[in-house]
Amino acid sequence: MKNRSLVSITDYTKEEYIRILDLAEEFEKQPTQKILEDFVVATLFFEPSTRTRLSFESAASRLGAKVIGFSDASNSSVSKGESLKDTILTVSNYSDIIVMRHPREGSARFASEVSGVPIINAGDGGNQHPTQCLLDLYSIRKTQGKLDGLNVAFVGDLKYGRTVHSNVMAMCNFDTTFHLVSPIELKLPSYVKMHIKNSNLQYHQYTDLSEVMKVADIIYMTRIQKERFSDPIEYEKVKNAYILTANMLEGCKENMRVLHPLPRVNEITEDVDSTPQAYYFQQALNGVYVRQALLATILGVK
């Protein structure tokens, strides 16, 4: 894994996921370790994403690395018309690893081809966001104590949500039963369902969130966006059906935890925050440990 770019969640094997999760656990116990003092980490955010950038910069800082980069393309050479290739070639002269987010899909794969240093994809448009996926795996393992034998429910926009697609792909490496809750218009694409079938795993589809409440170990909530509907009346019909409230949690498994990639809008009401099931803010913190594990592994110090 040393010096290898992480562009897509499928770049790693099951063993490699586990290795990262184990290492992240070490960093959770001892977050500040000055093991990257000789390294420069570049964070190139061609589109703003404060949460992801701060999480990476926090991870790098806790390991003692120097961080360079930009948080918005408008105050970088990109606004002068520089190509992605030239930006990457230049920055790879100044740094040991590049963390990048870019609005175009496939940009991170392309960058990994031209760059002299490894790339970590922090989101390329609607395509991949592998560090989000790894922190979700970490959160699932941490709350359930295992990754095998779980009932995982994905709720909301399963059609366009890249997080859902990569998480399903990654969880197919484990003995998972999938519960897919979405409006008819936003069902999981057939190629992802094929992947579940080919992994000899089972999935069940629902349109009603209450149906999975008693069976789920994990409920992974996502936001339904109005602009995904061709017919606004259809949106009005379904929009409230996928909002999780505290009283819906009655009768759920004790170990059940609610995850959400954040930011949430209204799909989880605030009264859920104070229940033992709410895990989404802790989930975001786990992102720092997972990113520490990735930086240390790819830079070859762990």
């Binding site: 290739k85 496939g106 794969r109």
Partner: peptide, 24 residues
Amino acid sequence: QQVPTRFSVINKEDLKLQCYYCEK
């Protein structure tokens, strides 16, 4: 951007190409 396209042929009977970059 000036990136030459590259695809893997994932279905030869019912032609389907997967983009090496964006994965679509």
